Amino acid sequence: MRSDAQKNYDHLFEVGREVVAEQGADASMREVARRAGVGIGTLYRHFPSREALLDALLRKSFDQLTAKAGELEKVASTGNALVLWLREMVTLTHSHRGVISAMTVAIAEPDSALHASCVSMRASGSHLLARAQAQGEARLDIDGEDLFALVSALAWLNDQPLFASRVDRLFQLIASAILVQPAD
């Protein structure tokens, strides 16, 4: 890609991230183009659909979350690494309001542009869980599917005005239910 085209792409990507953070997964492509100061055709040359923009945003976030799991393995206890990663995952879903359905579809659909990143991201969480379980720091009756389902539930709750204020408390409850408490 030419440097000017890359610059345009990067600018549209950042503006798209802002608009999606504000408006959620149904963000207006016209609003992205307006805020970026470009015509709608320019936006569509880089991102042919809202789904393409969302795919690009989520793929980058998922790849960063996968990398974060590797970093956490090196600096935190197995239980803490798992909880810190879960917190990052919940934060990701909160910053991309309404994307949980795209994530669940992508994991189940190998032809999705997001499939590989979603599977890799979920595998990194499963790996952190397995490490914590091997060290006796996490329950043995939970797997990666359960982790993903719990994060999905928290993401959905965060999108519901009635429950959004309780998400942090619920996260703490879930984290304490996953981790094994040392016997007194």
Rank of each mutant, 00 (worst) to 15 (best):
V90I: 12
V90W: 09
S95C: 12
N80Q: 12
E73M: 10
T78M: 09
A67H: 11
D111K: 04
A67V: 07
S112A: 04
E88F: 14
G98Y: 09
L92I: 11
L72G: 04
V105Q: 10
V119T: 10
R87L: 12
T78W: 10
G70V: 07
K74A: 09
L82W: 08
R87C: 08
D111F: 02
V90R: 01
V90Y: 06
E109A: 05
E109M: 01
M103A: 09
A106N: 05
M89N: 15
L82Y: 07
A81Q: 07
S117Q: 06
V99P: 00
E73Y: 12
M121N: 12
S117W: 05
L72T: 06
A113D: 06
T78Y: 14
L92W: 11
R87G: 10
P110E: 01
S120E: 13
H94A: 13
L82P: 05
A69K: 07
S77C: 02
A81I: 07
A69P: 03
S95G: 04
I107M: 10
L84M: 15
K68A: 10
S117I: 02
V83F: 09
E71V: 13
R87P: 02
C118W: 05
A81K: 06
A102V: 05
H96M: 08
A106C: 01
A108P: 01
G79N: 12
V83C: 01
L92C: 13
G98C: 00
E88W: 15
G98M: 02
P110G: 03
E73Q: 13
H115V: 00
L114D: 03
R97H: 08
S112N: 01
M103F: 11
V99N: 10
A102P: 00
G70M: 06
T78L: 09
H96S: 00
W85C: 00
M89G: 15
L86R: 11
R122P: 03
A113N: 08
P110W: 07
T78S: 15
D111N: 07
A76Y: 04
E71C: 04
H115S: 02
G79W: 10
A116M: 07
A76P: 03
V75M: 06
L86E: 04
T93R: 11
V99M: 10
T104S: 08
M103R: 06
E73W: 11
D111A: 02
R122V: 13
H94G: 12
V119I: 12
V99D: 07
L82E: 03
L84K: 14
G98S: 00
A106D: 00
A81G: 06
V75T: 15
S95Q: 13
A108G: 02
